[in-house]
Design a protein around this nucleic acid. Sequence first.
DNA 1: TGTCATACCGAACAGCGTTCGTTATGCAAG
DNA 2: CTTGCATAACGAACGCTGTTCGGTATGACA
Lengths: 200, 200
Amino acid sequence: MALLLTDTQVRDCRARIRAVAERHFATRGLTATSLRGIAAELGWAPASLYRYFHNKDELLSATRAAAHDRFSDRIEAAYAQPGDLWERSRALGSAYVDFAFEEPAAYQLIFALEQPDGDKTPELRAAEERSRRTLTVYIEDMVAAGLIEGDPELLGHVYWSAIHGLIVLQMAGKLKPSLPFDTIRHEIIRLLTRGASKGG
Amino acid sequence: MALLLTDTQVRDCRARIRAVAERHFATRGLTATSLRGIAAELGWAPASLYRYFHNKDELLSATRAAAHDRFSDRIEAAYAQPGDLWERSRALGSAYVDFAFEEPAAYQLIFALEQPDGDKTPELRAAEERSRRTLTVYIEDMVAAGLIEGDPELLGHVYWSAIHGLIVLQMAGKLKPSLPFDTIRHEIIRLLTRGASKGG
DNA sequence: TGTCATACCGAACAGCGTTCGTTATGCAAG
DNA sequence: CTTGCATAACGAACGCTGTTCGGTATGACA
């Protein structure tokens, strides 16, 4: 092969690499995933990957963004289902939790700590903004419908923090074994919603 | 040197290694911390560490347990301060958050994901149980005092999830920049406490 | 004084991310 | 049709990692 890959070829190639990387990250974990392994599966030499990604971190970042988008797809689809606002909110919450435990590696990739703001790809920033927006919009709808009251953006972050915290505590094996995950989850939603309800 | 280190010598040695490891983890991060670097700082050969820790994971686990204990010390001390129950609860919450951001590496070590229950050291299990207990006891006190109502263990996990989630979202740089951390934090506590309050 | 258990070390292995100079391919110019 | 060149992909190497292994030399005991 030789002269000048077209932009689409490059994009396709990056996507192919990212797909393999994503599966490796998901099945073998972060540290056990090697560029050598990914290259081997593609039938390539390790060095060849550097034509498409500057380094392992950049590949990781691209994979992160892809996972982020898949995550947003899921929760947006759940919220777009027919039903009243309560049902759709419950569907969104369930989709969130389901994604976390069906694709734990992807979820952990998305919410991994030590992500210095500095080296976030624009595509990653966009993917983050999208999911944050999705998680706020449904609260806006609930406030608009008079089901709860308060600043939607603030409330969105409150619900999000609580559910995310529960999920990662569960993933870290920190929850008391005798307390079922869903029991805590429903209590969180109940208390927050009661706390944010009008009057009372 | 030679014959038969006493148990105390071994324990002291392990503690010395762990102290260096902890500082390395804290200042250089998890992946950038190497057994070679730790050994070098101790003036040892890398292989010598294996006399005291079976491998890097075991050293990490010991460091994790130590961080856990330091964490429990802090929040227990805060809750033991004089004052009424509201004040002491607030002090505990502040101590929790302060620890997280003053020692982010330690906090992340404690709550790192992918901790298969299987290979948890007994000392790590004990350290976990202790902190979980501390976070439950103060809720028990508040329920006993009639400030809130519900199952203390369940409520403890609810508050814990929410605050932990907020902290790790902040650490991952996921929060909307325009929303101050403390604003969200106070709203979480306000809503949960309102939701768990008696009556209406 | 001599023996032996053993704390510690030096050297090596396999695997990692990454870099470098080389190879070989296929389009454009002559 | 041939030639030259730009470059996608490679092979080999570097320095790093965790870990293992065989050897060394030390200090307590017989």
